[in-house]
C-alpha cells in the first residue's frame, strides 16, 4: 500500500447521447506503483483512452475514485484539478499536439508557464529536457520543421517538464515507424531508469507491451487480466 502511487477503485464512466447511456468503464480496480511502467492493452473502443483521461483528471468519472498517494483527485474542484494536472500529470498522445505557432523550446516550457514559473526558469528547464531527449539542436524549430519522431520526443519532454508523478501516454508511438518507435521506447525506459518516472502507456504495440513491467488487459470496460 505504501508503495502504491495510484489506486483506482470501482471506476465507472458512461457517456450520454441525450437519451441512451453508453457505459464505457464498468468498475475498474487497479493499482500502480511508483517507478513502474504499466502497459494498458485491449481492443479498440474498450475504454483504454477513457481510463487514461480519468487517471489524468481530464474528465470526471460517473462513479468511483482515483487516489494519488491516498488523495481522491475528483474531490478537487475544477481549478484545483487544473493545477493537479499541471503539476502531477504529463500527457503524451498519439498525435504530438504541439502548438504549431510555438518553437520546440516554447512548447516544452508551456506547462512551466502555465504553472506561472518565470519564463527564463521554465525555458532553462525546457532546454535541459530537450537536451536530454537529444534535440538540443532543434530548440528554435517549429513543429512543422521537425520529423515525426522528433515531434514525439518534444511531446515527451513537454510531459516531463514539471516533474510529474506520472506520465500518461496514449499510443505514443502509434504514428511512428518501427525504428523510430523503438528509439522512443528506449527513451521512455531511460527516463524511467534515471528519474524513477512512472509511466502508464496505452498501446497496441506488442513489443512495447511485452517490455512493460506490468500488463493490464481491458475487456468490455473491466480489467480482465493483470500480468
Amino acid at each position: 500500500m505504501n508503495n502504491n502511487l495510484i489506486r483506482v477503485g470501482d471506476l465507472y464512466k458512461s457517456y450520454y447521447d441525450g437519451v441512451t447511456e453508453l457505459p464505457v468503464l464498468k468498475g475498474i480496480d487497479l493499482e500502480v506503483k511508483k517507478a513502474e511502467i504499466v502497459a494498458v492493452v485491449g481492443a479498440s473502443g474498450v475504454g483504454k483512452s477513457t481510463l487514461l483521461h480519468l487517471l489524468g483528471g481530464l474528465d470526471r468519472p460517473t462513479d468511483g475514485t482515483v487516489l494519488y498517494e491516498g488523495d481522491d483527485i475528483f474531490a478537487l474542484n475544477d481549478q484545483e484539478l487544473d493545477r493537479f494536472r499541471n503539476k502531477e500529470i504529463g500527457f503524451v498522445f498519439q498525435f504530438h499536439y504541439l502548438l504549431p505557432e510555438l518553437t520546440a523550446l516554447e512548447n516544452v516550457a508551456m506547462p512551466g508557464l502555465i504553472a506561472r514559473q518565470k519564463p527564463d526558469v521554465a525555458q532553462n528547464r525546457a532546454r535541459e529536457l530537450l537536451d536530454y531527449v537529444g534535440l538540443v539542436e532543434r530548440l528554435e524549430h517549429r513543429p512543422s520543421e521537425l520529423s515525426g519522431g522528433e515531434r514525439q520526443r518534444v511531446a515527451i519532454a513537454r510531459a516531463l517538464v514539471n516533474q510529474p508523478k506520472v506520465v500518461l501516454a496514449d499510443e505514443p508511438t502509434g504514428n511512428l515507424d518501427q525504428k523510430t518507435s523503438e528509439a522512443v521506447h528506449d527513451l521512455l525506459w531511460t527516463l524511467n531508469a534515471q528519474f524513477d518516472q512512472t509511466f502508464i502507456i496505452v498501446t497496441h504495440n506488442q513489443t512495447l507491451a511485452q517490455r512493460a513491467d506490468r500488463l493490464i488487459q481491458l475487456v468490455d470496460g473491466q480489467v480482465s487480466d493483470q500480468v
Binding site: Q79, F93, Y97, L99
Partner: peptide, 16 residues
C-alpha cells in the same frame, strides 16, 4: 480546438 484541448490537458484553466 486541438490546441485548446492540449492546453487544458497541460493544466491551463478555463480562465486561461
Amino acid at each position: 480546438t486541438q490546441d485548446i484541448g492540449i492546453l487544458r490537458a497541460m493544466g491551463a484553466s478555463k480562465q486561461g
